[in-house]
Amino acid sequence: MATHEHVRNVLLLAALAVVLAVLPPALSVYLKSFVMFTMMYVVLALSWNIISGFTGYTSFGHVAFYGIGAYTCAVLVADHGWHWISTLVVAAALAVVVAVAIGYPVLRLKGPYFAIAMLGTAEGTRVVVTVWDSLTHGGLGISFPSVENSLETYYAMLVVMLMTILVAYIVGHSRFGIRLNAIREDEGAAEVLGINATAYKLAAFALSAMFPAVAGGIQAYKVLYIDPPSVFFVQITIAMALMSMLGGKGTVIGPVVGAVLLYSAQELTWVNFPTAHLIAYGLFIIVIARFMPRGLIGFAIDRGWVRKGMVH
């Protein structure tokens, strides 16, 4: 991609940052929280996309990292009196450590077996958190000291989202990202062409684990109470996957578009039909996997609106 395109894209991102930064005073409490959660889903979808879209290792258990982040924040703030911002750094670091420890064996599994193993990992993490009650208070959950925090969490999420977009953008348009794509397309051929697949996959996995943990921490602080079922909720993984797939996995803009569209649609419907939107999620996955595996962005590419490939 020519340099001026990068400059244009970075300027666009800066403009988005400015708009979102000056917006809060104009927003109602509800809208502020709506925008914050939209940003959170952008973070989650983009992160999932790094391992599952760029690298092709579909994770059905990414909520594990989100939950780990939420619990790190909750335990440190509620039981040890830390400042909540500093816990986010610990959350990110812990997620990376866990991702490397789990990823080293599990990333050896291919395609559907990786997906299933991750599903098991997330459930396993939830069970461990539930059982380990001396640390996590088990099924009782953890409450934070109640404070008004909607503005702090809004800005924290904004910063994390901008960082995630920037990282995803850099990864997507670098040779690192292209090598991840090569692993997705044909891991054996990629290795024969000099790509150390194990190292690349681990790096991608660690990156994709880091931001969800931070987002989970912020979310925990925002809602002031967490318990295992609420932060290890399978549906959060589904949302990440579905948003990426809808927008177009393996691209940078796709998951962002998917997250905004899907989260808005969900907000609009769930008030009236609490279960209906979940049913729609299930049906949506079937339709997208079956009929438009490349998502909306694939549509745009086929019509020539967007150029093929990440690097031009």
């Binding site: 589904i238 299930g282 595996p293």
Partner: peptide, 23 residues
């Protein structure tokens, strides 16, 4: 088709069944 497509499709089916059952 690739195994993953089938996995995603049946996964979606499972979710739909769960929530229909909840309804």
């Amino acid at each position: 088709q690739p195994e993953l497509t089938a996995l995603l499709v049946t996964f979606g089916l499972g979710l739909t069944m769960i929530y229909v059952a909840e309804l």
